[in-house]
Deep mutational scan, measured.
Amino acid sequence: EVTIKANLIFANGSTQTAEFKGTFEKATSEAYAYADTLKKDNGEYTVDVADKGYTLNIKFAG
């Protein structure tokens, strides 16, 4: 089991951190699915992958 950390960075400057656990593939998939649910209210997003994929910096356009 691994932990994927998602740093969520919103257009208004606020930030939030979420963690997803499971296999690497499952946790990564859940992180992207979570970002997709936030897209409606926060706009499109870009992802900067860090720490060999264990950290995702997800920035929303607003």
Rank of each mutant, 00 (worst) to 15 (best):
E1L: 06
E1Q: 08
V2F: 07
V2P: 04
V2W: 06
T3N: 06
T3Q: 09
T3R: 10
T3C: 04
I4A: 01
I4E: 00
I4H: 00
I4W: 02
I4M: 03
I4R: 01
K5C: 05
K5Q: 10
A6H: 00
A6T: 09
A6F: 03
A6I: 15
A6E: 03
A6S: 06
N7R: 13
N7G: 02
N7T: 13
N7M: 11
L8N: 02
L8T: 03
I9W: 15
I9C: 05
I9D: 05
I9S: 11
F10K: 04
F10T: 03
F10H: 03
F10I: 04
F10A: 02
F10D: 02
F10R: 03
A11N: 10
N12A: 06
N12Q: 07
G13V: 05
G13T: 07
S14N: 11
S14H: 13
S14A: 13
S14G: 10
T15W: 15
T15N: 11
Q16L: 12
Q16W: 13
A18I: 15
A18C: 05
E19T: 13
E19D: 08
F20N: 00
F20V: 02
K21H: 15
K21I: 13
G22A: 07
T23R: 04
T23S: 15
T23L: 08
F24T: 05
F24N: 03
F24Y: 12
F24L: 11
F24A: 07
E25C: 06
K26L: 15
K26E: 15
K26F: 14
A27L: 01
A27E: 01
A27Q: 01
A27T: 03
T28F: 09
T28L: 15
T28K: 08
S29L: 13
S29R: 13
S29E: 12
E30T: 12
E30A: 14
A31Y: 01
A31G: 03
A31Q: 01
Y32D: 01
Y32T: 05
Y32H: 07
A33C: 04
A33G: 08
A33L: 10
Y34F: 12
A35Q: 00
D36F: 04
D36C: 06
T37C: 05
T37E: 08
L38F: 15
L38H: 08
L38T: 02
K39W: 05
K39F: 05
K39C: 04
K39G: 06
K39R: 12
K39D: 02
K39A: 08
K40Q: 11
K40M: 12
K40V: 07
D41Q: 14
N42V: 05
N42M: 13
N42F: 15
G43Q: 03
G43F: 03
G43V: 02
G43L: 03
E44S: 15
E44A: 10
E44D: 10
E44C: 06
E44I: 11
E44M: 13
Y45Q: 01
Y45K: 01
T46W: 06
T46R: 09
T46A: 09
V47W: 06
V47Q: 02
V47T: 09
V47L: 05
V47R: 02
D48A: 10
D48Q: 07
D48N: 13
D48T: 12
V49Q: 08
V49Y: 11
V49I: 09
A50E: 13
A50D: 09
A50M: 10
A50T: 07
A50C: 05
D51T: 03
D51M: 06
D51R: 04
D51W: 03
K52F: 11
K52P: 03
G53Q: 04
G53P: 04
G53Y: 03
G53T: 03
Y54H: 10
T55I: 12
T55S: 07
T55V: 14
T55N: 05
T55Q: 06
T55Y: 04
T55R: 05
L56M: 07
L56Y: 04
N57H: 11
N57L: 13
N57I: 15
N57K: 09
I58S: 00
I58D: 00
I58K: 00
I58R: 00
I58V: 09
I58W: 02
K59W: 08
K59S: 07
K59Y: 09
K59P: 01
K59C: 05
K59M: 08
F60V: 01
F60S: 00
F60G: 00
A61W: 08
A61R: 11
A61P: 11
G62W: 10
G62E: 07
G62F: 10
